[in-house]
């Protein structure tokens, strides 16, 4: 009986304690950050977000050498890179950001943010820090195809043009190589006529030696 009453009183008093806690909380200042009014960057008071903040990736194309390290590092294969060599006959002489000569055009550099898992491995793998996490996270969209972002500075025609220039150069080179080769062959033939007698006697001695080795 006493236990029963004790139980009741205990239950009642614990409820009162709980109500006191919630009542105090009712008047404590709230902790909410009102997002559209207060941007997280403003709240942080800087233009930086934590590493791995899961923001959109940004590719700084002038820095990118086209080495494809990021493509290999990506665990989900959501980066697609296609490079085109810069032709030496190209009138445009592109430079990297640090002043070196550019070797590859980035004819295609796509990141599919619908697949990317924002792990940041590509940013570590990149030798020139061309691919970085930005602070932009507000890019949800109504159509999934908008999440496939093309970073390449070229459109299709420009890419075709660059490819044509490269093909031309390759063709010129091939022609030149062919011409060189023919010239070389001609020279070699003249040489061959004078050397042929010595060569044939050498051949015979070596053949004799071979037969002896086999019988042994």
């Amino acid at each position: 009986m006493i236990n029963y009453l004790k139980n009741i009183i205990k239950g009642f008093s614990t409820i009162l304690v709980g109500m006191k806690v919630t009542f105090i909380n009712l008047f404590r200042p709230n902790v909410t950050v009102q997002y559209p009014n207060v941007h997280p960057l403003v709240r942080a008071g800087s233009d930086k977000m934590p590493d791995n903040a899961r923001n959109k990736l940004n590719v700084i194309i002038p820095k990118c050498t086209g080495c494809k390290s990021c493509e290999k590092a990506c665990p989900v294969n959501c980066i697609t890179i296609e490079t085109t060599k810069v032709a030496s006959i190209d009138t445009e002489k592109p430079l990297m950001e640090d002043g070196k000569k550019r070797v590859f055009w980035l004819s295609q550099f796509d990141i599919d943010f619908a697949k990317c898992c924002f792990c940041g491995l590509c940013t570590i793998a990149c030798p020139t820090s061309a691919i970085v996490h930005s602070t932009d996270f507000e890019y949800s969209c109504y159509d999934r195809n908008e999440l496939l972002v093309h970073f390449s500075p070229f459109n299709k025609e420009q890419v075709a043009e660059k490819k044509r220039i490269l093909a031309e150069e390759v063709k010129q080179k091939a022609e030149k190589a062919l011409a060189d080769k023919q010239a070389a062959e001609k020279a070699a033939q003249e040489q061959n006529i004078t050397d042929s007698k010595i060569k044939s006697s050498d051949d015979q001695t070596s053949a004799n030696q071979n037969i002896q080795n086999n019988s042994n």
Partner: peptide, 11 residues
């Protein structure tokens, strides 16, 4: 609406 992210930020 599609939200990119893995997981997306709360914002």
């Amino acid at each position: 609406v599609y939200i990119p992210g893995c997981p997306p930020r709360p914002e």
